[in-house]
Amino acid sequence: MARPTNAQPLPLMVLSLGFIALWLIAAAFPFVWTAWGSFKVEPDFFSRSDWTNAITGVQTIRQTGSAFTGAGYEGAWLEQEFWKSVINTAIVTLCVTVISLTFGTLGGYALARSGYRYTFWILIAALIFRAMPHVTLVSGYLLPFFELGIWGYLPTTIIVLVAINQPFTLWMLHSFFLSIPKDLDESAMVDGCTRFQAFRLAVIPVMWPGVVTTGLFSFLLAYNDFTVTSMLLTQENQTMVPKIASFLGSTQAEGKVMYAVAAVVSAIAPLFVLVLFFQRQIVSGLTAGAVKG
């Protein structure tokens, strides 16, 4: 039986459906449009004469003989060596996610199980660190990193991103471990395990749902970062996002803006797949902090 409180009169239903339809268009249309346009040539994507050119591809047919062209992708991936940035991004995101989760689960577990007052101060410090604009931190790194000669390398960036990510990871896993009953590891310790053995044998097997959710957000942070990667990496070591930003300066002037469009679409595609598979975890992760805090 439909719940009576949810039954809507027709006009309200139309209004609400219309609103949702509008929102969906606003949310999804820009991506669909750009993905479609990335297979056209520039005079179609930025069409001065008629916007329908971007759909039919009039200029694309005139220039290349077919309505779709992979020229943008070819230019970006091969000529501008976007593939290198893709590999760098893969290395950075993988390492950041794995290291963040390792540090975070250990720390989060300790914070959840220790009853002392200093846990509160650590969590508060983490909250303040979480609010720090990343660029203020980067302006602190830059000079020491130049002096130490470790500026520009991937490992430096990875450890910086791990550190920036720690506050969030700690909070998230702390509240997740609070939801795992204490009895579980305490009974393991009664049976003669040390604290670490109890963690390894009793807690690790049941912690994966929380870890996967937290891992998704660590992945997103590393993947989406522009501030840190654009300031701490040399041109050869650039990841995707700063690479795309660098396309805008030089290549846009040369009329190669379609390279940037193709690169943007290439960078969105993995995120699209990620949401497709992990929608449930992303939603639960976003709400976890809210429901408990």
Binding site: T102, F103, G104, L106, G107, Y109, A110, L111, R113, S114, G115, Y116, I122, A125, A126, F129, M132, T136, L137, V138, S139, G140, Y141, L143, P144, I159, V160, V162, A163, I164, Q166, P167, T169, L170, R195, F196, F199
Partner: peptide, 28 residues
Amino acid sequence: MPHKTFLAFILPSLLAMLLFVALPIGSV
């Protein structure tokens, strides 16, 4: 949890935050 075990568990995380979040604030 005794202080020592707590420290052992949280050390990597704390160290990362001190070195790359707290110290840069000082450096700034």
